[in-house]
């Protein structure tokens, strides 16, 4: 059974006078991994930042068109509430450097002043770290600073931090581009396991990575959606010549 969790309708985004995203119409399937690919500057990151409205940090960003999450336009919702439903992991690991591993996982709750009991806290921390495949490595050092971890571990900590909020969608903006191959493969495995529970949208520069882990692939070129289909189809039988050229490494 396939169902759409997120859909855009003639979506446009601009920074000042630069038109970055042009008339996007995309459907994202529930509990699948969707990879967003394309050459640099094609609007991949901008697109996923629009999904949780992080692009609004840039004061000259404007958008036109609609994005629906479960049938509701996200631009009519409160951005802070929306961001609790749509988690995000960034290119460079960014754990809170003043907090321990334990506090980092719970940051979404504590910073929002949710009151949790001790057992509930322990439960969330253990579950999130297990889902992020980090539990075994840090279970004895939970109260050490998160910044003592290696880059790959920090990134998994950041994933655990957004999992703790039980979001509906997790956005990953090139989560492995700053990591070594072993850490990368760990994160890929982990994402593969996570799609049982979550919808995942991942921006990646790495064509093999998109091929390995995603169910659907969207190919962006100069701010437009060139092609979107099941990953298998995109890789074996792309309809668009630009997609084909990119996948076979002729440009990008």
């Amino acid at each position: 059974m396939e169902s759409t969790i997120l859909r855009t309708e003639d979506f446009n985004a601009s920074f000042g006078t630069t038109h970055v995203l042009k008339n996007l119409n995309i459907k994202i399937q529930r509990k699948k991994i969707t990879a967003i690919m394309g050459p640099s500057g094609c609007g991949k990151s901008t697109f996923i930042r629009c999904i949780n409205r992080m692009h609004e940090l840039n004061s000259n960003a404007t958008t036109k068109g609609k994005i629906y999450l479960d049938g509701q336009n996200i631009y009519e919702q409160n951005p802070t509430i929306l961001r609790r439903k749509i988690g995000m992991v960034f290119q460079n690991p960014n754990p809170f450097n003043t907090m321990s591993i334990y506090q980092n996982v719970l940051a979404g709750y504590t910073l929002n002043s949710y009151k949790l009991t001790r057992t509930k806290k322990d439960e969330i921390v253990e579950e999130s770290l297990k889902n992020a495949a980090l539990w075994d490595e840090v279970k004895n050092t939970l109260h050490k600073k998160g910044t003592f971890l290696s880059g790959g571990q920090q990134q998994r900590l950041c994933i655990a931090r957004s999992l703790a909020m039980k979001p509906e969608i997790i956005l990953l903006d090139e989560p492995t581009s700053a990591l070594d191959p072993i850490s990368t493969s760990k994160i890929e495995e982990l994402l593969y396991g996570l799609k049982r529970i979550y919808t995942i949208i991942i921006v990646t520069h790495n064509i093999q990575q998109a091929g390995r882990i995603s169910d659907y692939t969207a190919f962006f070129y100069l701010g437009e959606l060139t092609e979107m289909d099941e990953t298998k189809t995109i890789f074996t039988n792309p309809k668009n010549i630009q997609t084909q050229n990119y996948i076979t490494g002729r440009f990008g």
Partner: peptide, 12 residues
């Protein structure tokens, strides 16, 4: 990046 991390968790 710290600010982004916090805002993306839905922290006002």
């Amino acid at each position: 990046s710290l600010k982004e991390a916090s805002l993306s968790l839905g922290v006002p």
